[in-house]
């Protein structure tokens, strides 16, 4: 597979990728395993699991795993530029349209509505993460402490992640040592 072909496949994936992060998994399996037999389905599922445990955007992580697997470092970069190509220009275009008619009252109504939907979506994401977690004493303890740190002490997200990661890993090592 040439780099250009790889680039074009990822441009296509970026353009049809709509909705939540999990949408990318079936698309990747279809493009790289079923249609072209370049990567096995198991490998893609593994990459996806791994992409979720790395920091950053899950879709970007899996894109680079597959790009790297097929064409090395240059492949990872090519795949990445491919997948953000269509979304990037869509955003630039939409933002300028919205900027030009921001005082239109119907657009104001629309933005008011979707702005409210955003809060609902964030709350739904919290609920989904909550339901997908093993909720033991450790979970509740970390959750409450983090919430206090964020809401009352206004700790920044970066510092929250750093501090709580250390505390969490320390507690886990301590627990393991006792059993």
């Amino acid at each position: 597979m040439s780099l250009l072909k790889l680039f074009l496949i990822f441009v296509k994936i970026g353009a049809i990728l709509l909705g939540g992060g999990y949408v990318i998994l079936p698309i990747m399996i279809n493009e790289f395993s079923e249609k072209r037999q370049l990567v096995t389905k198991e490998e893609i599922i593994n990459y996806f699991a791994l992409a979720q445990s790395l920091p950053g955007i899950v879709a970007a992580n899996i894109t680079m795993f597959i790009g790297y697997k097929l064409k090395g470092k240059l492949g990872a970069v090519t795949a990445m530029i491919g997948i953000i190509f269509a979304p990037f220009w869509t955003i630039i275009l939409l933002a300028s349209i919205i900027g030009n008619c921001i005082h239109n009252q119907y657009l104001q109504g629309l933005l008011w509505g979707v702005g409210t939907a955003v809060i609902a979506l964030l709350l739904l994401t919290v609920r989904e993460m909550w339901q997908n977690s093993k909720r033991d004493l450790f979970f509740y303890l970390m959750f409450i402490l983090a919430l206090i740190a964020l809401l009352i002490f206004k700790l920044s997200p970066v510092n929250t992640v750093i501090i709580f990661s250390f505390v969490g890993i320390f507690i886990k090592i301590f627990q393991k040592g006792r059993t």
Partner: peptide, 21 residues
């Protein structure tokens, strides 16, 4: 362990943003 820790933290971070918005 890191991933186990990040789940409750992510919940708390998103909840606090929702409150802020």
């Amino acid at each position: 362990s890191l991933l186990e820790t990040l789940k409750p933290i992510s919940c708390a971070m998103l909840l606090s943003v929702s409150v802020g918005l």
